[in-house]
Amino acid sequence: MKKILQADQLKLKRSSLLIIVLLVPLLILAYELVNFTYRAEFVEKQAEMFGAGSMWMFLLYDNSLLFGLGCPLAVTLAASVIANIEHQANGWKQTLSMPISRGKIYLSKFIWLTISLFLSTTIFLIGMVLLGKLLGFEGNIPLVLLMGDCYGMLITVLPMMAFQFWLSMTIKNQAFSILIGSISAIMGLFLAAAQTTRWFPLAYPIQSSTVILQYEGIGYNPDFSAYLVINLILGIILIFIGSRHFAKRNVQ
């Protein structure tokens, strides 16, 4: 498996994957930087109104919507880039006539997708810490909450990763999977807005934050652990189904 991962790593060289990995966290961080400097007064008032314990808490609350929308988009694009490397190279017939099980080939690429998103969320994590320090937020850095937001997202977005990856791997035209991914991300936003539909797994990334706004103000998200458990299990099931289907396909 290590060899397959190394081969896939080489195939990703000079691809646009790195740009996508950087794009989403940097855009959100840039937005927050502008928000907390140019609109500092407004932000402080809002933080007070929402009863945020600290500016850290407000930052966590403020970016969860953008991150919940941006992360599924990053997933969509990264899955597309990784799969498209083989499509574009006319590579499936070569790669799949190697003496390697198709399941492993599928899994190796999925691991690279996971690594990409891990990098993306880690950059976001580091970026948030730096942002807080730069702007002189008071109080201790709530590292557990920050990490929960970032890596929790990685788990709530797992079913979406599994589905988008399967789409991009099996359908050559990447415009299709990117369209589906974008619609899903926006659907998630709408589903999350209503009390009943917010329990759809598709709506979890949007709500995947350690803190949320409640009647009493910004506080811990009581549903977060449920989201994590449900989407972790769902994600693993979808990865399994996707790889089984991939292994049985005819290769053109």
Binding site: K3, I4, Q6, A7, A89
Partner: peptide
């Protein structure tokens, strides 16, 4: 397949890699 080498129809090439890197990717696999 361990004992077969093949070339099917139009050639496979990873355009973002050099010729050597293309072979290296298969060598690793």
């Amino acid at each position: 397949l361990q004992r077969i080498g093949s070339l099917v129809e139009s050639p496979t090439y990873y355009g973002n890699l050099t010729g050597r890197e293309n072979l290296e990717a298969v060598r690793r696999l």
